[in-house]
Design a binder for these strands. Structure first.
Length: 315
DNA sequence: AACTACTCCTGGAGGC
DNA sequence: TGCCTCCAGGAGTAGT
């Protein structure tokens, strides 16, 4: 569930409470958490100070003293909670289950880092998809480079020319599939890809190559704007005391998770299709790009549930 | 080479 | 109440 806005928000939450803390102990309760990505074992944590927290794509990158890097990917259900010795939650983010104020460690807490002020950082992940790796800096750089991530949408790395050029290289796949591909552009997951397509008014099943110049420009704008706006919104929503809202907050979405509810723009029911292994919500009236028939033919192949109202829309 | 389908997991929701 | 099935959805990998 955590996509770029959530991961970026967690990074900002954790930074002030973890910076300059030294790790004094580590307890790894689920070995595969650290073996899937390779790197050093949990015994290598002790004695290293946290000097910074960065981010590449959806991966948190902790810079540790003595040339070590800690990589953390929350995947679908990972969560990080920083608790003071008193039990007070100092910072938290990621999947909101278990609740951020629940007793820790939880049965799904897989890694606990003890810090020099007796606070602790808990990594909890009920579905065990998350990954943690501790590596020398150069190894971490190589590891990240091998992932061949696309450009970062926040911070100016992605612009219209770049977006257009990358799109032109892959004209065939459905545009939604491209947006989800971290090699195309990083940061978008199912939620924000749905929202970006909604904002741009482009049907998710269209082949990328069918987008005209204006649509490409709208999508480029929408992708960056969606991620930027939600990052800011989460930051504001978090404020100083509501970290549980980092991922729980979903009010204000136009199409994602709103199957059957009225599209905020035109009022027709938000539709649902399934492909690329996930659920896509979109408004069939606003997001056609004038290619409704082509979309419908494609979507039959993709086991789409078309609404009865679609025939009315075509008239 | 370029896509798509499957896989990793478990808790919660909904049907009966 | 409880059992079953489905669903959530990042991303690596296997298959076509």
């Amino acid at each position: 569930m955590p996509e770029l806005p959530e991961v970026e928000t967690i990074r900002r939450q954790l930074l002030p409470t973890l910076i300059d803390r030294t790790i004094v102990a580590a307890e790894l309760r689920l070995p595969k958490l650290m073996t899937k990505w390779g790197g050093l074992g949990p015994e290598a944590f002790a004695g290293h100070r946290i000097e910074g927290i960065g981010r590449r794509a959806k991966i948190l990158r902790f810079r540790l003293s003595d040339g070590l890097t800690l990589l953390v990917h929350l995947k679908l259900s990972g969560q990080l909670v920083h608790r003071a010795a008193s039990g007070e939650t100092l910072a938290a983010g990621g999947h909101p289950m278990p609740a951020f104020d629940a007793p820790l460690p939880h049965k799904s807490t897989h890694l606990i880092l003890g810090l020099d002020d007796r606070s602790r950082l808990f990594f909890t992940d009920v579905r065990q998809f998350g990954r943690v790796a501790l590596m020398p800096d150069e190894a971490a750089e190589g590891f990240l480079a091998a992932m061949k991530h696309g450009p970062e949408p926040l911070g100016g790395e992605l612009d219209l020319a770049t977006f257009r050029a990358r799109l032109a290289r892959r004209p065939k796949p459905p545009i939604k599939t491209l947006l989800l591909d971290q090699g195309f552009v990083v940061g978008l997951g199912n939620i924000y890809a749905n929202e970006a397509l909604g904002e741009a008014g482009i049907a998710p099943a269209r082949s990328a190559g069918t987008l005209d110049d204006a649509e490409v420009e709208r999508l480029d704008q929408a992708a960056r704007a969606t991620l930027t706006e939600w990052t800011e919104r989460l930051r504001r929503e978090c404020g100083d005391g509501f970290p549980e809202r980092v991922t729980a907050f979903r009010e204000g979405m136009a199409v994602h998770g709103r199957f059957g509810q009225p599209c905020p723009a035109c009022g027709s029911a938000v539709q649902r299709i399934r492909y690329a292994d996930n659920e896509t919500n979109y408004c069939a009236r606003c997001q056609t790009g004038g290619r409704l028939l082509a979309d419908r033919a494609l979507s039959r192949l993709l086991r789409v549930d078309w609404p009865r109202s679609i025939d009315e829309l075509e008239r």
